[in-house]
Amino acid sequence: MDSQLTLDLYRTMVLIRTFEEAILREYHADKKPVFDIGAGQIPGEMHLAAGQEPVAAGVCAHLTTDDAVTATHRPHHFAIAHGVDLRRMAAEIFGRVDGLGRGRGGHMHLFDPGTHFSCSGIIAEGYPPALGQALAFRRRGTDRIAVAVTGEGAANQGAFHESLNLAALWKLPVVFIVEDNDWGISVPRSVSTCVTSNADRAAGYDMPGERVEDNSVEAVYEAAGRAVERARAGLGPSLIEVHTLRLWGHFEGDAQGYRSDLEGVPGRDPIPTYEAALRRGGVLDDIGVKNAQEAARQRVEDAIAFARQSAEPDPASALDHVFA
């Protein structure tokens, strides 16, 4: 694989991780000594995507901001990889007026019309709107596509199956991504899902299905390339399941007492793994790593500072934006 491309994939993953670590830090900074989910500068549920960077980096490397992405309740990695502005995203997570949704949405409801990015807090329900975006793109005679993302738990939802059927039936330019992080909150996929690979379900909808087993960004990139090319060519949707990793809890505050695989998790972190591979290939050295980390740190800390200085929404504006 082209070394510039591999470096880009690596840098995207580092940027995502740096952002998630900063949100983690800011989220917990004023929730000590007693954790109160509604307290502090970032209140509410917080679902961080550390460990799942390869999926977002590998898929979004094929997209431009003219393409659409619909993500999940765990959306930051896809937002960043797709090019959503870090400052306005951070400000929205902080619930501030300069946020993407002027503080009305929060971290599960990030909408950026400039990059056609959105996410939904409801499992599998980001799939249907992606179909409509794809339909609109096709009607306008473009080769733009929509990427719809869910977790493996969503593959047991009706919206997932309805969407696969309709997208295949109408050969819509959609790429369906399933992030299999093994856990639906506390329920392992072996307890929830009758097939070992959700990619097998693609056959039921007459579309290509592929499972990427090892959370490798390059493998995701290759699989996504095939699916994106097919969609842009007007040949219809594809389904890709990536066996990825939930490095942290379902949400912050989740003690993960249910998690039998916890001990082995740090050793499966995809970023050190990829970094080592790039070092072995001579693409990356100490300076390259430091530069990537420093560049990411600067961008992320700039975004956090922007969010912090942004004002809280005026309570007098609470009723704004219900209707256009």
Binding site: P128, Q133, S163, L166
Partner: peptide
Amino acid sequence: TAFIGMAVGAAVE
């Protein structure tokens, strides 16, 4: 669910 959601996505665009 799929086709009403599809309308939502098309309207967003």
